[in-house]
Design a binder for these strands. Structure first.
Length: 483
RNA sequence: CGGGGCGUGGCGCAGUCCGGUAGCGCACCGGUAUGGGGUACCGGCGGUCGGAGGUUCGAAUCCUCUCGCCCCGACCA
């Protein structure tokens, strides 16, 4: 296990200055870069590769539930966006407007979509006549724009990438079922692919999506300050959008009804979660299942004669590995092995394979795990069989580590002062009873800056006193500060 | 949008208070020796100091305006 920080001293301390650590690790690991346009960031190939892997996993899961992909326009005419009152009101402060086309002023400005309900629902209205046209199950991968004031790479940028699913159903029950189904897809994605444990639950009314009947969320705990990150949301829109956009249909009795809608989204913000949940003092730590590079082979040699020998051995080892693994051979000759070790650790590659003359002589390679730093000699012939299992083990170990953090930093509190102190001290998630009143919710928010992240599905057996007003309550919620 | 800080070669910084025509480390290019945890030495290339205007014989330095970034708050996927 490597303990000295070496060059990594250049990286801000992950415990003492987490925000700075984040900014630096994003840049140094070449995940993202600043852009000339205020509030926007450039996602570099290494960051985008992670997103693509996440995307692929999620896309497969979405399609497996019977949803098809489609694409709707970037622009929404002003009038259309304004149809659903709560919806506009909620998004108004963050909408960007197109007022001119070429030299001509538009008669009706276009909104750049902050989300697409307002453009998709009117189209669904056209497509739906009968109950036989339902359900409509569509997802789109897109960019959206929300005029944010404090941009942070991946976590909050003016333009970001996501998928947004939009469905229409004949009954509220069916819509609810879909809403929960998709939330569970997100939960599974996070836990299985990203090694991030999450708390699924319901949002309080004040935190729900503008225009929704109910919003469900998965909340993850970040490292460093142990703040929460809303990592995916799923909304049951009820018939609010069905009514205003007139998505109506005749049932099998010839009776007219409005359709029930759902929408659900997961964004590039999740990349920020991967960084913040797993990263450590040496940089990123990629979950093997989505890591852009799962293993890197670093050749070690002195003289040109050795170089040839080593590089051909590297090639052989590489060719011997299962072709579905993402393996990279780092043959650069302008960097020393030590330099490469540090760089790949910073980038979080799960496994490093070192191969030098000494290894060739004994027909082995040195295998080093990023998660534990553990180093071991593996016979070359055994590597192909061993590597997939090792990656699984690392994935599991990372999940367990994240779960341990979540568990250790989650505490049930009954005393308001304790809640306040935990919030101030970045102590993690605080579980407490809540009477359900907005007044109590607000008080906590203004006084402690912690918010109700969700009302977890898993609830205690007994009731208890509201953390603020003391009223006996059935509901336990998670309070935490959030990104 | 409110409070604070900062913008000087690709990156990190010094120089700004007390104006005199730009410097250091890293990176980059060339070389020699190296190469199992950011290798050493030698020789180079590169900036007009975020932008605009003003004061002055002369501005990175002083004044005004402006843009951007970072941190803290209000809002958020």
């Amino acid at each position: 296990m490597v303990t000295d920080r070496g060059y990594v001293e250049e990286l801000a301390d992950v415990e003492d200055d987490f925000d700075r650590w984040y900014v630096e690790v994003v840049r140094k690991a070449e995940m993202a870069d600043d852009s000339p346009v205020r509030g926007t960031k450039i996602i570099r190939p290494y960051g985008f590769a992670l997103w693509e892997n996440i995307q692929r996993q999620l896309d497969d899961r979405i399609k497996a539930t019977g949803v098809e992909n489609a694409y709707f326009p970037l622009f929404i005419p002003k009038g259309m966006l304004e149809r659903e009152a709560e919806h506009v009101e909620g998004f108004a402060p963050e909408v960007a407007w197109v007022t001119h086309g070429g030299h001509r002023k538009l008669e009706e400005p276009w909104a750049v979509r902050p989300t697409s309900e307002a453009i998709i629902c009117p189209i669904y209205a056209r497509w739906v006549q009968s109950y036989r046209d339902l359900p409509i199950l569509i997802n789109q991968w897109s960019n959206v724009v929300r005029w944010e004031e404090r941009p942070r790479a991946f976590l909050r940028t003016v333009e970001f990438l996501w998928q947004e699913g939009h469905t229409a159903h004949a009954s509220l029950e069916e819509a609810e079922e879909r809403t929960l189904m998709m939330l569970d897809v997100y939960r599974d994605l996070c836990e299985t692919e990203l090694a991030i444990p999450v708390i699924p639950g319901l949002k309080s009314d004040s935190e729900k999506f503008a225009g929704a009947l109910r919003t469900y969320t998965i909340e993850a705990m970040m490292g460093g300050k142990h703040w929460a990150l809303q990592s995916g949301t799923s909304h049951n829109l009820g018939d609010h959008f069905g009514r205003v956009f007139e998505i109506n249909f005749l049932d099998d009795q010839g009776k007219r009804h409005f359709a029930y809608n759902t929408s659900w989204g997961l964004s590039t913000r999740i990349v920020g979660a991967v960084i913040m949940v797993h990263g450590d003092e040496r940089g990123l730590k990629m979950p093997p299942r989505v890591a852009p590079t799962q293993a890197v082979i670093v050749p070690i040699w002195r003289k040109n004669k050795e170089r040839e020998e080593v590089e051909s051995a590297v090639q052989q080892v590489r060719d011997s590995l299962p072709s579905n693994l993402r393996v990279k051979a780092d043959l650069r000759d302008d960097k020393t092995p030590g330099w490469k070790f540090n760089e790949w650790e910073l980038k979080g590659v799960p496994v490093r394979i070192e191969l030098g003359p000494r290894d060739i002589a004994s027909e082995q390679v040195m295998v080093v795990r990023r998660d534990t730093g553990e180093k071991s000699a593996v016979p070359m012939t055994e590597l192909p069989a061993l590597l997939p299992g090792l990656l699984d083990e690392i994935q599991d170990n990372m999940y367990q580590a994240a779960l341990r953090m979540l568990t250790e930093k989650s505490v049930r509190v009954t005393d308001y002062e304790e809640l306040r102190q935990r919030a101030a001290g970045n102590a993690g998630f605080s579980y407490a009873y809540w009477c359900g009143s907005e007044a109590c919710e607000d008080k906590v928010k203004t006084e402690t800056r912690a918010t109700i992240r969700c009302i977890p599905f898993t609830q205690p057996e007994q009731s208890g006193p509201c953390i603020v007003c003391g009223t006996d309550s059935e509901t336990e919620v998670v309070f935490a500060r959030a990104y």
